[in-house]
């Protein structure tokens, strides 16, 4: 287990000692706290969180993807023996960092409501599970976008910021993927699960895999 997680531990250690994690992580904690402390807290709160989390997961993904300068990355890749494994480690660390706090808030609220036997809990069990899955999915796809941009535009912070901001703002458009589709899968209280749930998660998985594959292939071309 220790060996399996070695790339993730290395990526996390580099991220921590370089303090590159601080700006996106602190903004994420601040914004998500503000969203979740603004009543009413219900499924619409999760909807807003998805929009915010996509942008911040992308920022964290870019920060993590760009945490090693190119020569340092050569060393870690040669030690690991697989550039793909290092890429996956960067993506997974960014996604976990992004989703940890909102997921914690969701679990805390559900636990609080169930412990105090609130008359009208803010989330049904079904809503809580789907909301948790949606947060996980949006963190995964956002982080993969950030990693891709970091690989294709190494050291070009200005261009990278422009692309991430534009793609994040474009999530407001109903035809854009993946935030509007994932938001549409969040059931209102008492509603059944929408039939688009599985296809939507399939779409998110495809987008994430495509972005990571692009990061792996295009990264080698630009070097």
């Amino acid at each position: 287990m220790k060996t399996i997680a070695a790339p993730e531990r290395y990526v996390f250690a580099v991220l921590v000692v370089t303090q590159r994690w601080a700006p996106p992580a602190l903004v994420l904690v601040g914004l998500i706290t503000w969203v979740w402390l603004t009543p009413p807290v219900d499924i619409d709160t999760v909807h807003i969180s998805l929009v915010v989390l996509f942008a911040l997961a992308a920022w964290l993904g870019h920060t993590t993807g760009d945490s090693e300068e190119p020569a340092l990355e050569l060393i870690s890749t040669s030690s690991q023996g697989s550039a793909t494994r290092i890429l996956i480690a960067k993506w997974s660390v960014a996604a976990v960092l992004a989703v940890a706090f909102p997921l914690l808030l969701l679990v805390a609220i559900c636990t609080y409501d169930s412990l105090l036997a609130t008359a009208v809990p803010r989330f049904t069990t079904q809503q809580a599970v789907v909301a948790g899955l949606a947060l996980l999915a949006i963190a995964a796809v956002g982080a993969s976008l950030g990693v891709l941009v970091a690989r294709v535009l190494p050291g070009r912070l200005g261009w990278a910021a422009c692309i991430l901001i534009i793609v994040s703002l474009a999530q407001a458009a109903p035809w854009m993927a993946p935030v509007p589709q994932l938001a549409a899968t969040l059931p209102a209280s008492g509603d059944p699960l929408p039939p688009t749930l599985l296809p939507t998660y399939g779409l998110v998985a495809i987008i994430t895999a495509t972005l990571l594959t692009g990061a792996r292939l295009l990264g080698r071309l630009v070097k």
């Binding site: 290395y10 370089t18 020569a71 050569l74 060393i75 040669s78 030690s79």
Partner: peptide, 30 residues
Amino acid sequence: SAMGVVPDRVLPPARMTARAYLAHLAQLAR
């Protein structure tokens, strides 16, 4: 099957000790 690399210019994490850095790389290489 396995290789080592010494790049020309490297900027390693400044606050990480050499021992910690080498230990991470040893773990990466199993």
